[in-house]
Design a protein around this nucleic acid. Structure first.
Lengths: 332, 332
DNA sequence: CTAGTGTGATTAAACGATTTTTCATCCCCA
DNA sequence: TGGGGATGAAAAATCGTTTAATCACACTAG
């Protein structure tokens, strides 16, 4: 049985109020009893928390986190960053997986509210729009989503990706997305297209609809593949390598999100990383501000960062570049 | 403001006790009022939960989940499975990341207990041993860990891996682990070694200590690489492919845990998968039994399952096998 | 000597739900 | 007519903690 406030009070012959005052440093307590009580507290390792406090104060110290798919390789980093940011402010994280299903998402939100969370961080399912919750909410999606609170600047990430490839001399690009219903992916592709030089040609493929033959595209003149996710970049990379092409000698590959495996493979995957700690901190901050009824700041766009690894190199037959493959991570 | 029990009671002119009775179906309520109240409840969408209930009943309906590293690509699947299993029994999941640090792990446990969790599922940090918690606990680690509650049968997984490779004719194996301090990895390697035929040679490399030159090993006669994680299998596969070797034509590669990317790459990675749903269900079950003070069952060992994809094939120059690479997943 | 002022600590109410106890009827039968 | 169930619902206690209100006491100033 956990020690309770009453136990301490009884053992020291004082009232629970006095003990509580010592804990919070609020009421009037003599130096003497304060010392006595805090010593006892340390001795038996008492921690106030629990439902009692939550009931009285109306704060549970727990934030909900609703994700469309925990097993998506991007979300671990998300969850970890959010957990870290919440820990820093003394909050716990209650997770829920919506399995990409809007109905499940609604249920998840309800369950979290029912459990008394103080606020909710939501990464919404594709195509859903969350609003009108009676709880502080932070939405992490894309700049285009109404109600979005904070997110990576996917558009800018796309631009940087294409700028990087063009600077290496690539003029025939293949842009790979998974689903055009994902606002994140469409933003990245749009950013890529916005950065295209007049002489650059870029074909977009949505893998959900039809998977192209990567090696054939390369044979047809494409020298660089830019995917909206490292997962698809990896698919392309292994398929190209398997077909006997050299990466980045014959063809460059670039991805997004710096997934766990991206630095592990050979060549290392050049990728655009989200600044997870900053996004997470902003999301948590967003909730805490709402809890204090502070007017909300404008949606935050956190810049993405290019990590140059070995999978991108000079376009073949480009006179300007004939250096060898770069080693290690270079950030810009 | 969320609707409260008192609101409903006041609005219908009954006592809170009566409403609570309707909710739980316990006390004596006339059919008439029961109908009236439950209709009102449905109308305003009231859900009892919250700290009030937790305080009175002593159950918060929340289970803690402590992981050594959320961003480890294996844990998403873990977390998802646990979340699903807990949802099924009406529980929420409070996650905490110990960052592989025993001190942080202890703190995480305390924070979770303080928040009033009903039980804790722990995947312990390497080398730590959790015990003596005043809360129901389920430990998921390896069979060798004292106090282990449930885990995959890593040893058996290792055996199956080597048996698979030997059946394909491989007689020169390279076994890859990351750290010999990981009880999971040592169990897998031990299982692999236990299945070796007398004429098979297998060299073990711990990547944490020294990373071998994979291509050189292959040139030296090794025809198959078995890693204790898909992550390292992927490292090996891309490096071998990059060196111009054909997988599985020249060399086979096998991993563990069926990570998110394993089916996405070319060739698909043959791997030994953990039965996450079963492990998660067993862990949650373990907690629920303790809550009801039922004597604990013996530790559960959940068999691993071989998923044969394209990365393993017949050993080169093996007279018995000359089929082409298999397509798709074949389970045994 | 009394009223006012601090000081240190206790009492009691409150939070939202559950559960035990009590209460008020009504009905039946002796 | 008056006890004895049965029935339906209200009253009250309880969980652990915080906090406003209160109290007891000493000290000081008028």
């Amino acid at each position: 049985m956990q020690p309770k406030l009453k136990d301490i009070a009884k053992e020291l012959g004082v009232s629970t109020a006095t003990v509580s005052n010592v804990l919070s440093g609020k009421g009037r307590v003599s130096e003497e009893t304060r010392r006595l009580i805090s010593e006892k507290i340390r001795e038996i390792g008492y921690r106030p928390g629990g439902p009692g406090r939550a009931l009285r104060t109306g704060r549970s110290g727990v934030l909900g986190l609703v994700l469309p798919d925990i097993s998506n390789p991007l979300f671990p980093a998300f969850a970890q960053a959010i957990e870290a940011a919440a820990s820093r402010t003394g909050h716990g994280i209650l997770i829920a997986d919506s399995h990409g299903d809007p109905t499940a998402q609604t249920e998840a939100l309800e369950r979290i509210m029912q459990r008394g969370a103080d606020g909710i961080v939501i990464v919404p399912c594709r195509g859903t729009q969350v609003s009108g919750l009676s709880l502080p909410t932070a939405i992490i999606d894309s700049a285009a989503t109404p109600g979005n609170s904070v997110c990576a600047d996917h558009f800018q990430g796309g631009r940087i990706a294409v700028e990087h490839l063009q600077a290496l001399g690539h003029r025939r690009l293949v842009l790979l997305g998974h689903s055009r219903r994902s606002s994140v992916q469409t933003a990245r592709i749009a950013g890529m297209q916005a950065a295209l030089a007049p002489e650059t040609r870029a074909d977009v493929y949505w893998l959900e609809e039809a998977a192209p033959d990567f090696a054939a595209l390369a044979g047809d003149g494409a020298t660089a593949f830019a995917a909206t996710s490292d997962l698809h970049a990896l698919t392309a990379l292994t398929r190209l390598q398997g077909a006997g092409l050299s990466v980045p000698g014959d063809v460059s590959v670039l991805g997004f999100d710096d997934l766990s495996f991206s630095a592990q493979i050979t060549p290392g995957l050049t990728t655009l990383a989200q600044n997870m700690p900053e996004i997470a901190a902003a999301a948590v901050q967003h909730l805490l501000l709402q809890l204090e009824a502070v007017p909300l700041p404008a949606p935050r766009l956190v810049p993405m960062k290019l990590l140059v690894r070995g999978s991108t190199g000079p376009a073949p037959n480009d006179p300007k570049h004939n250096k060898t493959t770069q080693q290690g991570d270079v950030t810009t």
